[in-house]
Every structure is written in C-alpha cells, then in structure tokens.
C-alpha cells in the first residue's frame, strides 16, 4: 500500500505533466503555425533579401534599421521526447519545428515593423540565434531560444 502511494507520487506527477504538456504544446504549436501562415500571406508583398541591395535599381528616399525578435521555448513533453532522441540519435523533429516557428516569427515581426515604418523592402537580412540559459540547474538548462532578424528597410521614391 505504502509502495503504491510512493510510486504514485514519484511517477504520477511527471506523467500528469507530460500529458498536460502534450495537449497544451500541440495546441500552442498549431495555433502559432496558423497565425504565421496568415501573416506570411499578408506580408508577401514586402520583398526581403539577404543581398546588399534590391536586384533592380531603385531610387531610395529613406533607409533605416529594422528588427524583429522572439524568445520561444519547448514544452515539457517535447523536451522529454528530445531527451529520448538523444539516446538513439537522428533528427530531433520537435526542435526543428521550434526553430522553424521562431525564425519565421522573427522575420514576420521584422517585416511588420518595416511596413509600419513605411518601408517598401528589407535588404541585408541577417538572422541570429542565441540560447538563454535557465537560472535553474546551474545554468545548464535552456530557458528558451532567442531568434533575432534584422535588416535595412528601404523606402522607394514613388
């Protein structure tokens, strides 16, 4: 009887958290992808390039730095899966989708800022990734991943 209670406490909570995280994490990811697709369609008219200038000659009237960033984290369930994946090796899909979402979100925020400021294109786009260390476990854990997208917004003479 005692053993059953002890086992329940030891395993019950992590399993409960895993189940909870599975549902919330999936819901969060799905709604995030939905919002990304909608906003990507909306900002499709804003050309962006990693090159230094727009390929066709433009008469530029204004330029300025634009940036977008996001800090994103995995849910408990996916982190658990990724941990298992660490045993056998191979593609860690849960992290792939996390980074994909974060990059697209950062680029979208950059584009949205560019159009708010009246720019017509963003050139010299750069992406940077950094890990935020968690204050638990002597900074070994990951609190989240920050993606920064930045570039130079250009305004075209009309």
């Amino acid at each position: 009887m005692d053993l059953a209670v002890q086992l329940g406490l030891e395993w019950g909570l992590p399993i409960l958290l895993l189940v909870l995280a599975y549902f919330t994490g999936t819901a969060v990811e799905r709604s995030h992808y939905r919002s990304i697709r909608v906003r990507e369609a909306r900002t499709r008219r804003m050309p962006t390039t990693t090159g230094r200038r727009v390929p066709t000659p433009w008469r530029v009237t204004d330029a300025g730095l634009v940036a977008g960033s996001v800090v994103i984290s995995l849910d408990y369930f996916k982190r658990f899966l990724a941990g298992l994946r660490g045993l056998v090796g191979g593609r860690v899909k849960s992290y792939e989708s996390l980074l994909d979402r974060a990059r697209r979100e950062a680029l979208l925020r950059m584009k949205e800022q560019a159009s708010e400021r009246g720019f017509d294109a963003v050139v010299n786009v750069r992406l940077e990734t950094s890990r935020l260390a968690s204050s638990q476990r002597q900074g070994k854990g990951t609190a989240g991943v920050e993606i920064l997208a930045f570039g130079t917004g250009l305004k075209r003479a009309s």
């Binding site: 909870l20 990811e29 995030h32 940036a67 960033s69 996001v70 800090v71 849910d75 968690s134 920050e146």
Partner: peptide, 23 residues
C-alpha cells in the same frame, strides 16, 4: 512565469520584451 511557460511551450513574452528593450 517563464518557468511555467516552459512546461506548456510557446513564446516567452516576458523574455522577448526584456531582450527587445535591452537591445
């Protein structure tokens, strides 16, 4: 808050803002 968010996944808005301000 971020610790809680780490459980359910998704954007850590507090950190995004913090880094945005700092930058």
């Amino acid at each position: 808050m971020a610790g809680l968010k780490n459980l359910v996944g998704g954007e850590l808005k507090g950190y995004t803002e913090l880094l945005h301000e700092a930058r």
